[in-house]
Design a protein around this nucleic acid. Sequence first.
RNA 1: GUGGGUGUAGCUCAGUUGGUUAGAGCGCUGGUUUGUGGAGCCGGAGGCCGCGGGUUCGAAUCCCGUCACUCACCCCA
Length: 425
Amino acid sequence: MIRSIKGIKDILPDQMPRWAIIEATAHKLAQCYGFSEIRIPTFEQTQLYSRSIGESTDVVEKEMYTFQDRDGTSLTLRPEGTAGVVRAFLEHNLTSQLSMRKLYYIGPMFRHERPQAGRFRQFHQFGVEVFGTEDPFMDVEVIGLLWQYFSDLQLPDLTLYINSIGSTDDRQHYITQLQTYVLDQVQDFCENCQRRVQTNPLRVLDCKVTKCRSLTDNAPKLLDHLSSLSSSHFQSVQEGLSLLKIPFTLDHRLVRGLDYYSQTTFEITSSHLGAQNTIGAGGRYDGLVKNLGGPITPAVGFAVGLERVNLLLPDSLIPSSPAKVFIAAFGELGRPTGIKLLHTLRQSRFIAETDYRAKSLKSHLRTADRLGAQLTIIIGDDEKKKDLVIIRNMQNKMQIEVPISLVSEKLGLWMYNNVDIFLIS
RNA sequence: GUGGGUGUAGCUCAGUUGGUUAGAGCGCUGGUUUGUGGAGCCGGAGGCCGCGGGUUCGAAUCCCGUCACUCACCCCA
C-alpha cells in the first residue's frame, strides 16, 4: 500500500468544520483590520528563501525541500510566507500604488523536520505583512490583530511575549559584548551554545538548558544596549499595547530564528501544547525589502501555525451541522418517485440524501438515523398510489401525510420559518 | 540528524513463566411480526500478531535487524 509521506497529513472530513472556522475567522478579522488577501506560489527560486531567511539559519541549511527544475534552476517548496509576499510586492510594484500596503495569506508551508506534536512537514500558516510604515503603532496593530484572532477562537491560556532586538547596528555592538561574556566562561555552557556563540550568538540566550539559562541571567541585556531611536520605538510599542489593554510579558531572551527580523519581536505561546508551544509569532523586518532589491521599506508581520491553533480550538465553537432531509424510497413505484423528489429538493438547496442500497424501510431509517437526518420522507408504493409522502420527525417520531407537490413548501416552513408542521396538520 | 516509547480486527486495546483452531469492547452486517431508526437479546463477516531473519519440538510472546508511528532533543509557527 502506498502511504502518505512522513509528516504530511490528510485533513479528513470530520476535521473540516474546525478548519472552516479557523480560516473563516482569519479572513474576517484580517479584512476587518484592512488587510487584503494575496495568494503566492507554493514554490519559488531557492535563492529567494536563502537570501531572506538567512544562509546560516537551520531552516535554510537543513529544512528546505529543494529540487532541480528541468532546466537546472534550483527551486524550493516555501518554508514560510514572508519571502514570497515580499517578492510579489516588489515584482508587481505594489509599492508605488499606495504609501502603505497590508497583505495577508493562508496556505501550506513545507519544512523537512522530524515530526512531533504540533510539528509537521507540511503545515499551514495564516500570516499578515504591512509594508511602508515604521510607526510603532503599526506593530501594536499587528500584535492586536494576532491577539484578537486567538481570542475570537477562544484559545486557552495564552501568553504574549515581546522583545526588541534593535537595529542591525544595535545588534552588532551588543553581540560582541555578549560573546565576550560567554567566551569568558565558555566551558560552562552546553555543547550547542559553545558552537552557537560563534555561528548565531543571540540564540545562546534562548537555550533551554537550565545551566545555560542561569549563566545568561547575568549576561548583558540587549534591551540595555538599544540606540535611543530603537529604545523609544519599543517604548511606544509597550505604551500602545497597554492602551489597548493587551497583556504582555517582556522577555529579553526572545530572539527569532530568521535573520530578517529587527526591532520588535513577539511570540504567543500556550501552556497546553507540549514542546512546540509557539502558536503565533512575528516582528519587524525593516531591512528585508531592501535586501531583496527593493527600496528601503519598513515592514512588520506575523505568522500563525494553524495546526497548533486547531489543537487548542475548543469544541464549543464548532457549529452543529445544518438540518438534513433523508428520503426513504422503496418499492417499484416508491423508489423512482423518491429519486425524483430527491432531485427536486436538492434543486431547492435542501440538504437531502438517500441510500440506494437500502431495500427495506427499516434499513432506510437506520441510515437516516446514522446520517443525523432531522426529517425523513417515507415514500413506498402505498404512498405513491395516493400521491402522498409521509414526513417523519426523527426526534419525536411524529409523522404527517403531505401531498407530494407540497413537500418543498412544508420543509421550507419547518426549516427556515420554525413552523411545527407536525402540530398543524 | 540523536535519543526514548509503541507496533495484535476498521477503531481502542487484552493476550498470563514461549504451548493447540488469537480475544474483548466499539463499529459494520443480518435476525429479533414480511412497511418504521436509536436500546436489549441472538448470529455473522473481518487479523501473514508491522516486515525479515534467528533460537526452539513449538514464537504474538525470547534475540538481532529493518520499517512505520509517536514523544522529546534540535528547530520553529
